[in-house]
Design a protein around this nucleic acid. Sequence first.
DNA 1: TGTCTACAACTTGTATACAAGTACTCTGCT
DNA 2: AGCAGAGTACTTGTATACAAGTTGTAGACA
Lengths: 255, 255
Amino acid sequence: MFVAGQPLMRPQGHEPGEPSKEGFCNTMHARDASNRPRGVDLIYRELRDRICLLRYPPGSMLSENALADEFGVSRTPIRQALQRLEFEGLVVSRHGVGTMVRTVDLQYLREVYALRLKLIDLIAEIPPARITDDDLELLTQLAGEARELRDRRDPEALARVYHRFNEELSLAIGNQPLREIADRLFWQTTRVWLQLLPEMTWEDEVDYIVDEIESVLQALRRDDMEGVAAVRRKHMVLCLGRINAYLEGPILALP
Amino acid sequence: MFVAGQPLMRPQGHEPGEPSKEGFCNTMHARDASNRPRGVDLIYRELRDRICLLRYPPGSMLSENALADEFGVSRTPIRQALQRLEFEGLVVSRHGVGTMVRTVDLQYLREVYALRLKLIDLIAEIPPARITDDDLELLTQLAGEARELRDRRDPEALARVYHRFNEELSLAIGNQPLREIADRLFWQTTRVWLQLLPEMTWEDEVDYIVDEIESVLQALRRDDMEGVAAVRRKHMVLCLGRINAYLEGPILALP
DNA sequence: TGTCTACAACTTGTATACAAGTACTCTGCT
DNA sequence: AGCAGAGTACTTGTATACAAGTTGTAGACA
């Protein structure tokens, strides 16, 4: 059945026999030479993006057969990607019925936002990973891309910018399990803002995002992680306020 | 490809078309009438227990074919369970080689423990779920079971008691995503203590656990969640101290 | 017309055959 | 002896056929 290996833990380094990779990740993602995801991971990311960019709105039915045809693979890898999306709460599968993009449960959304607010403080307390000049450069570029969208209403593009912004900030989290958690919670909630964006004033929303990116950028230049946390907290609360205004009941009762 | 459903989120309640279930869970687990897991979920839990009880020591190779034979199913459900275990960081699969129970990475372990210590405080801050008398009764019983093990050295049984203790406390976490996160982190770290238990003094370890359960019980009776957090924090730090004593470098540099 | 039933057309879940990859062994040569 | 290389016996990953389940619909019948 199983071969009893050395029952001791590995003192430091990497998995035995595993090729040395920078940024050893718990859930290792398959990547090719150019560090781009491939295989099942590529499918997973593509589907996640489609869901979180509302190309698959909540309630949509996803067909394993159709996806298999589109990606040129069999149902097996598709099912793996969908199973992962189900673990992360973005879809739900039922035998004989189909796989549906989950609608957002308000109670769950409240709890996720309450948790994310708390985690922002935690992230600031923990010594951050090193920020390179390239990272700051990318953030500057993202702020520019967002600003350019002010005169061209393109919600999906704006959402994509925000996703990249979040991805970049995630890299600064100096605690790997916390980073994984923060990412999961982000993807669980990011659809809601985009869903309500048509009801908002476009220019205001662009300005909010530009302000958030630039404020974070300034704080990062000062190595002021508490400042980053304050900015993110402020914008999250503001965003929640705007969301609350368009929902029947308030999403989050602030403490 | 997909049918555009109602693009609005569901105001409250449950998934449309989903049978009303108490304790709506994000990652819904298949259960039969008696609320016991079945199918893939049963296999997943069984394998997770075997790994965390060290019946599959770190470094062991798991054979999909052997597991399929043992559980009387094909490789497909086995692979689903293993994939989930891989998401949660307990095993690692490599094409052409096999599926190995992961050894514990010290750096990752440090980060998980640091995070768990922070989350304990968070759990206390959030309004808890209601504790029933049945829960208190179960905790009392668990303390008794642990006490009985003082004269019968049975590490696996003691670990099982502690797992049930943690499972019960998890139910008191009033924030569902936080509960899921705390559970995952628990299963990622619980092997380490058990692994080093043979080096410890058996009676002392039993006493520690009995003390933790009973102290938590007293705090719960007072509805003192901050007290529960204090007890858990204290015991986690103590446990870390004992672990540090038997490892080359300290696992966690306490702040 | 309303209702109940059987069926057909889907869906996801499972079993199985095959492809791809790795590691070890045994052989043959230097 | 030492070493290179083909081959073999495993492993996981993928494709496909089939089983199980659900839903809507057509049709018989009251």
